[in-house]
Structures are given as C-alpha cells and as structure tokens.
Simulated assay, not measured.
Amino acid sequence: MSRPEQKAEDKANKDAETAPDASVKEDAGRQAQEDAKAEADKKAKAEAEKAAQRPHEDAKAEAACRTELKTLGVTFEEAPVVNDGAACGIDKPVLLKGLPGGVKVEPEATVRCEAALQVTRWLDASVKPSLEAAMPGETITVLSQASAYVCKNRNGAEEGKISEHAFGNALDIAGFTLKSGKTITIRPADKEPTLEGAFQRAITEAACLYFTTVLDPGSDAAHQNHLHLDVKERRGGYRYCW
C-alpha cells in the first residue's frame, strides 16, 4: 500500500473511532426535545396561573360604579379594552382624569372603575381633612400618580406573581400639589417629626379603610417614593397594610 493510501486509511479509522455513536446522538436529541417540552409546559402553566388571577368584570357592577363616579363629580372617560395576553388586561377600563373639587390626576390613569372609586373616597374622606388639619387653608390641586395599569410582575420582578397593576386594580401615589404651589412628595416618614410627616402617616393609615393593599415607603425597597394602593379581592375581607 502506498504511503498516501495508508494515511487516508489511518484517518478514516481514526474518524470512525472518535465519531459519536448514532445511538448517543439519538439519545441527546431526544433529551433536548424533552427538556424543551418541559420548559414550554412550565411557561404555559405559569401563564395559566396568572390568567386565573385576572378578575372577572361584571357588567352591572361596572355600570353602577360609573354611575357613582359621576355622582361624586369624578372626571373620567371610557377607555379602550386593554388586552396584553392571557394574564394582563382590563375588560372595561376607565381613564381617570380628575377627582372632586377640581383635583387633576397627572398623568391621567387607566384603571378599573373600582380603583378610581376608592381613590375618590379616600381623597374626599381622609386626605382632604388630614391636609386641612396639618395645613389649614391649603387645598389639593393635583394628585400625582407614578403608575396605573402596566403589565408586569410584582415589584418588576422577572418571575413570580403578577402585579395588581396588570389588572388595573392599583394606583401608585407619588404626591400632591397644593393651591399655594407647594408639593408634598411621598417618602420615608415613619419617624419624621413634621406636619408633612404626620399628614403622610395619617393618609396611609386611612387608606386601609378603602384599599385591600397599602404599601408605603416603610414596606420595602420597591416602595420608597410612593404609596401603592390596590383593590385586590381577598377572602374574608382580609387587608394587607404596611
């Protein structure tokens, strides 16, 4: 056998020895398919669990809520249906533009009617009287909101439970502008010995009379500059207030 022929044969034998066995390749391919299916099933299950959290919006209840908003003097418009997949969305949203007494909502907020209604009740029954006690003669002209509807998980996490913002159930209150031009911003104020600190503590405590979840700057790092208020339905009237 000539030298070139010998080299070719040796190379062929070496390739045959080092080539993966066909059955090994087949097993690897099967495992990859099983892993991909398992991952897809996991994602589908997570989406189904999130979709199950989306609240049912009863037509009669929504109509009654809108009637009450009008009676209270709330400025709002009907907003287009929001549908960001199986989990996120609002079937019958409203665009909240203003609250009683000429209080503007900035920016305007897309929420479920129930969230708009409870913000109105809280403002009229608790926020305004607390402000009058802390700063006589002052009135609120603007309610500044940091977040209304947005499709996201809680605290913006990549995984985990979906936020009530994703259902239009929540508003994040960043602060207020007063008639004098003064602004009050939500901040850590648990031990602040000022009238503004007392005002913030008063309206935070009162918020739990109207909302089922109240998270303030003392609750965790994700809420250092706003009040998270939502109307998540819970069994037995349970409320989560921090």
Rank of each mutant, 00 (worst) to 15 (best):
A189G: 00
A198Y: 06
D10P: 03
G29I: 00
E34R: 13
L227M: 13
C88K: 01
V82A: 00
I186T: 02
A28F: 01
A148R: 06
L215H: 10
K179W: 08
A46Q: 13
R66L: 14
R3K: 05
F211H: 11
G102Q: 12
D216I: 05
V24E: 09
L195R: 15
L195T: 12
L195S: 14
E158H: 06
Y149A: 01
L227F: 15
T139D: 10
R66I: 07
C88M: 04
T183P: 02
N155C: 04
V103P: 08
G175P: 02
A61E: 15
A59M: 09
K179D: 14
S144W: 12
D58I: 10
G137E: 12
K182M: 08
V111E: 09
Y240S: 13
Q31K: 15
H223Q: 09
D220V: 06
V82W: 04
H223I: 05
L96C: 04
P100S: 08
V105Y: 07
T185C: 02
N13V: 03
E158G: 07
E9Y: 02
T177H: 11
E106H: 04
K11M: 06
I173W: 10
A36M: 06
C241L: 14
E233H: 02
E5V: 02
N169C: 01
A48C: 09
A32C: 02
D21C: 03
A46V: 12
G101V: 03
E233G: 05
A12V: 08
I90F: 00
A52N: 11
E196S: 07
R239G: 09
R121W: 14
E57L: 05
T18V: 01
V119T: 11
P93K: 01
I90H: 01
E26H: 06
C208M: 12
A64R: 02
S180A: 12
D58C: 11
A116G: 13
F76I: 03
K25P: 03
I203A: 07
A87K: 11
K45S: 14
C151P: 13
C151G: 12
V103D: 06
L117M: 12
A22C: 03
D124Y: 04
V150T: 14
L178C: 12
G29W: 00
N225P: 01
K179A: 15
T67C: 05
Q118E: 15
A174N: 13
G137D: 08
S126W: 11
A61Y: 07
A86F: 01
P217S: 03
A198H: 09
K50E: 14
Q224Y: 05
A157H: 01
G29M: 00
C88Q: 04
A221M: 04
V214M: 10
V142E: 13
I184D: 09
V81Y: 00
E9G: 00
I184S: 04
H165G: 11
A189W: 00
H226P: 09
P217W: 08
P93G: 00
A64Q: 14
R154N: 13
F199T: 07
I140H: 10
A148L: 06
A46H: 07
F76R: 09
P100D: 13
N225Y: 06
M135D: 08
A206C: 10
I186S: 02
K45V: 11
A61P: 07
D230E: 11
S130D: 12
T67D: 14
R121A: 13
W122P: 13
A36S: 07
P217E: 02
